[in-house]
């Protein structure tokens, strides 16, 4: 399942990425395989989304969230 498919309040564990280049940036920001991510809220217009990961809040576009595979 992709991170972009979650609704606010739902969470999952990162297992893989589908895009190598973007994954480097995400991992530097603490989105590592094995981390638990929780979707906190959507922006007022539905995109981007704010997630809680590695103890802080990160925002990213849905298109970017869709490269994160979660369980």
């Amino acid at each position: 399942m992709k991170l972009s498919q979650l609704n606010p309040g739902e969470s999952g564990t990162i297992i893989a990425f589908t895009d190598l280049e973007m994954s480097v940036k995400l991992m530097e920001m603490g989105c590592l395989p094995g981390e638990i991510v929780e979707v906190e809220r959507f922006a007022p217009l539905g995109d981007p989304i704010a997630i809680r990961v590695a103890g802080y809040q990160l925002c990213l576009r849905k298109s970017e969230a869709s490269i994160i595979i979660i369980q």
């Binding site: 920001m29 802080y56 970017e64």
Partner: peptide, 9 residues
């Protein structure tokens, strides 16, 4: 284009 950004408290 990227949009990966920290939302500070």
């Amino acid at each position: 284009s990227y949009f990966i950004m920290e939302l500070p408290v």
